[in-house]
Amino acid sequence: MTGILELRGVSQAYRLGRRSPFVTASYLQVLSNVDFAVRTGQAVGLVGESGAGKTTMTRILTGLERPQTGQVLFDGKDLWEMNAVERLEFRRNLGVVMQNPRSSLDPRMPVGSSLLEPLRSLGIDCDHVARVNEVIEQVGMASSVLGRYPHEFSGGQLQRIAIARALMTRPIVLIADEPVSALDVSIQAQVLNLLMDLVTDLNLALMLVAHDLSVVAYATSRVSVLAAGEIVETGQPLELFSRPKSKATQDLVAAVLTMEAGLAGRGLD
């Protein structure tokens, strides 16, 4: 069961600030012996409560942080032993979407320029303008938006543009860390549908991170539950909902049910 992008036995700890020079530094164990894989043509979900270590996992998967122990493998090659050519290849094949769409686009750049940036930076040899037009259409927007600035868009539109930027270099892996949690509930489904369509149309490997189990259950076919830095459970979303084994999963299910009950209750009066 190998994936295109994998974590093998990854652990990560952060050194906490020492309050006094007489006390030995303490460490916060954020990830413990994590195995995780993203496969081509498949959407996998990662859920966990706040502070579970989800963002840390995506930072390690994308090569922003080096894990203390364990390996990150892209197409079987260790990320931290790659040569420059392999690293460039990895960068081209990776698209990342972040949580806050307002923060993920440079306010001083027209969105068209923001979309061109990955092509320029990674030296992609193609008709850049044609590619920008193609991708903006792929995320359901008109090419007339390209000359406008980020402040002229809604959060949902910005997230579509951020997804477009992630797709510019035709990546095979897309990592989305809480891509809908900053959005209105009514917009969330649209953005999730877009991501699901892209997985099928482009045969992507998608990793979708969320703290809300219903979000990953809606959009992915396999879900891992992260609690206090450990993967405590992996399975199909419905399985997790109906027979949650771990305490963490039960809590996540309860959170979804409580919210639904709350909504239903409000509908009654």
């Binding site: 922003l64 460039l88 972040m98 923060s103 940036e117 930076s121 951020a162």
Partner: peptide, 20 residues
Amino acid sequence: EDFITAAQLYGRGRMPRVAR
């Protein structure tokens, strides 16, 4: 800001990120 992290992910080095 996240657009800085994004730039790092699409391969912009530190000084190009500062300049751009």
